[in-house]
Simulated assay, not measured.
Amino acid sequence: MALAVQVKIRRLFAAGVLALIMLCGCSGKEKKNFEAGKALLNEGKYAEAVDAFDKAIDAHGSNNIRGLEIDILRYRAEAEYRAKDYKAAEHSYKLLTSADENRSEYLDMLSIIYTKLSNTDMDINIDNAIDMYEKAAKQDDKSELHINAGITIVQYYEDMYDKKLDNTYLDSAEEFLEKLLKETDRKNAKVLAVYAKHMSKREDYDKALEAVDEGIALLEKKKLNKSDDETLKSLMFSRGSCYEYKSDYNKALEAFNAYIEKYGEDDSVSHEEAFLKARIR
Rank of each mutant, 00 (worst) to 15 (best):
N188S: 13
Y259V: 13
S143K: 10
A196D: 01
S111Q: 09
A274M: 13
L41P: 01
D123E: 14
A173Y: 02
H60C: 14
L96V: 02
F275E: 04
Y93N: 03
K31N: 11
N63S: 09
L12G: 15
R11L: 15
E178G: 12
F275Q: 02
D267R: 02
R281L: 07
A208V: 13
Y243D: 12
E265F: 02
D100E: 13
E69W: 09
S270T: 07
N102L: 11
E273W: 06
I70H: 07
A136F: 04
E144D: 08
G25H: 05
A77L: 10
N125D: 15
R82S: 07
D159W: 06
A47E: 15
M109L: 13
T231P: 00
A39G: 09
A99G: 04
N148K: 01
L180S: 02
A189E: 11
S241D: 10
Q155M: 13
L192P: 04
C24W: 07
T168C: 07
I151G: 01
D229F: 00
Y157E: 08
A136E: 13
D141E: 13
L219E: 06
S27P: 00
A189I: 05
K277D: 14
N102P: 01
S172A: 14
L181M: 12
I21R: 04
T115P: 00
E254N: 09
A49P: 06
L145I: 11
A47Y: 11
A252S: 14
E254L: 07
A52G: 03
G37V: 14
S98R: 03
D162L: 11
L95M: 14
I70T: 14
F237G: 01
D228H: 03
A129W: 06
D162R: 05
I280K: 08
A14M: 12
D123L: 07
E78I: 13
I260T: 12
R66T: 07
G61Y: 11
L40Y: 08
E175V: 00
A274C: 05
V50L: 10
E183K: 05
R82C: 03
I21Y: 10
L253H: 11
M1S: 13
F176C: 00
L232C: 03
D54L: 14
E69G: 02
N125C: 05
N250W: 05
A137T: 06
L253A: 06
I151K: 01
D58H: 09
R103P: 04
C26M: 14
G37K: 08
S247M: 11
A211G: 04
R239Q: 15
R279C: 00
L117V: 12
N257P: 09
V194A: 10
L276P: 01
A88V: 01
T168K: 08
I216A: 09
Y81V: 03
L177R: 05
E203I: 07
N148Y: 02
T120H: 05
Y156K: 09
M22V: 14
E80G: 00
K246L: 15
I113S: 00
E178W: 04
M132Y: 12
C242S: 12
D266F: 02
T120L: 07
I21Q: 00
K135C: 05
Y93D: 04
V17D: 08
D166R: 04
L18S: 09
K251E: 12
N33P: 06
H271D: 15
S118L: 10
I147A: 09
